[in-house]
Simulated scan of single mutants.
Amino acid sequence: MSVPPGAEPTLWELHRAVSQLREDLCGDLAQLAARLDQVVTQDVYRADQRAVDQRISQIEAGLAGLRGEHDQGLERAEQQRREDQAQAAATRRLVLSSFVAPLLLMAVQLWVVSRGSSP
């Protein structure tokens, strides 16, 4: 139904338009209220940020401690490796000397015996 130009709207049409505006406004306000329910205050946000910062600091401190322990473990392993190498070298020298010394003594005895004993 078209309204001729210059014709005034009826009271019923005005009522219907105002009712429609009111429903639209109520719906928009409900949506806005729902979105505002999800918003936090600055105090809550700051408290949450402080808690997150504190957790990160604790994690960093724990990580630094683990790094220190890891470095100490590497140093101990390197020291142990050096000690093992020194022990292995000492063992090789001992084994070599325990076989070479008797052989040399036996060779000297054989040489002395082979020369014979002359009075």
Results as ranks from 00 to 15, higher is better:
Q79L: 15
A86G: 04
Q109C: 08
Q79V: 11
E8D: 07
R115P: 02
E69Y: 09
A89P: 03
S97E: 10
L63I: 13
Q85C: 10
V39G: 01
F99I: 01
D48T: 12
E23L: 14
Q49H: 04
P5A: 13
R50I: 06
G27Y: 06
V44Q: 06
A17N: 03
E83S: 07
S117N: 10
F99H: 04
R93Q: 10
S114F: 07
R67S: 12
A51K: 05
L110P: 02
D48V: 08
D48F: 00
E23F: 05
Q20T: 12
L96K: 01
L32F: 06
V113W: 08
L104D: 01
R82T: 03
A77I: 07
L21H: 08
M106G: 00
P9F: 07
Q72C: 06
V40R: 11
P4W: 05
Q85P: 02
D43H: 07
P5T: 11
V40T: 15
H15P: 05
H15C: 15
L66D: 08
Q31E: 13
L103E: 02
T91M: 14
V44C: 00
E78M: 11
C26W: 07
I56S: 06
I56G: 02
C26Y: 09
D84E: 15
E23D: 14
L104W: 01
G6S: 05
E69N: 08
R93W: 06
Q87C: 10
